[in-house]
Computed example of a mutant assay.
Amino acid sequence: MQDKSEKTLEATIARITSSGDGEPEPSRSQTLASAWRDLRYGFSQHELWLQLGWQDIKQRYRRSVLGPLWITIATGVMALALGLLYSVLFKIPVAEFLPHVTVGLIMWGFIAGCIKEGSEVFIANEGLIKQLPSALSVHVYRLVWKQTLFLAHNMVIWAILMLIFPRPLGWDLALVVPAMALLIVNGVWVSMFFGIVATRYRDFSPLLEALTQLLFYVTPIVWTTETLYEQGGAVSERAAIAKLNPLYHYMEIIRDPLIGKPIEWENWIVVGICTVVGLFLAMLAMRRWRFRVSYWV
């Protein structure tokens, strides 16, 4: 038997399909304005993508006792193992290093999910794209919403760590809210841009997955730039090079207030610039190719 959420989802899809509540015809022109209207119209269909994203999680953990908590448990175990191991290798106190690794892994789960699943977002939703009259961005919002729910689950680990290793957080903690908002907005453009490109060029998805794995090692998640600076010489120069990685700045705007480190506004400036440039690239891709996605899938 179907549960209540499945019936609600089917009713929502049926209402949109029967009413023909699709994208307005004027927005089908190949302009940046029409691409922006797609993003706005897709967001206005929040009832649909909120239910779809929640249904994705329920389907994934159907008949599981702990459900989505398995993701939290897996992330917590990974953070504990890596934190204990690398704190010994780098000779950093566990109370200082474990929160650094934990928050890094939590953020990385969201980032990697938007990149890797984003490249498959339209291919995975082939049926809905061909049958449901909705904006293309609905499928992107669905994915980002699902990743946001996973992120919220994993933040329980951070809360537990703060109880075990208390530290003064201060008013800087309030910056987590705009930082998370920026991360979610970037998740939207990343999923949209890579989703369109990977749908057109199917070899792009496995290449992107390999590059994502490489990015994990060059981003300060299980290591810190402070450790490199302390070693001095050529190693300290590599720390400066590490800051050329945009993901470093995305990590820091969220991790710094969560673990009580001083805020560096340079990170916010870089993230802001990357967000604007990324949204523009995604809209360019939408302007040119979004009406071809239904044929490519």
Rank of each mutant, 00 (worst) to 15 (best):
R287M: 15
Y217W: 15
L32D: 04
G187D: 14
V293K: 04
L182E: 07
T275Q: 02
E209W: 08
W145R: 13
I263G: 01
I160E: 10
P99W: 11
R37C: 06
V77P: 02
Y201D: 11
Q2G: 00
L211A: 15
M78W: 06
Q213V: 06
A135R: 10
V293G: 06
K7S: 03
I273L: 11
T219Q: 07
Q213R: 04
Y86A: 10
T219R: 12
M192W: 09
L279M: 13
N267Q: 04
A35Q: 07
F291C: 02
G118P: 03
D21Q: 12
V222K: 03
P133I: 00
W70G: 02
I92K: 10
G187I: 02
K7W: 07
G187W: 05
A282Q: 11
G109P: 00
L281Y: 08
H100Q: 13
N245P: 04
K7M: 10
G53K: 09
G67P: 00
F122S: 07
G104F: 10
Q30E: 13
L214N: 02
L50I: 12
W54D: 06
Q45L: 13
T102I: 05
L136S: 13
Y217F: 15
T102N: 09
H249S: 06
T75A: 07
E96N: 12
S87Y: 08
Q30G: 05
S137I: 01
S137W: 05
Y201F: 15
L175Q: 04
I269N: 03
L173H: 03
I71D: 11
A14P: 00
L48I: 04
T148Y: 09
T225P: 02
A239Q: 01
P99C: 09
G127P: 00
I263W: 04
A210D: 04
R200V: 07
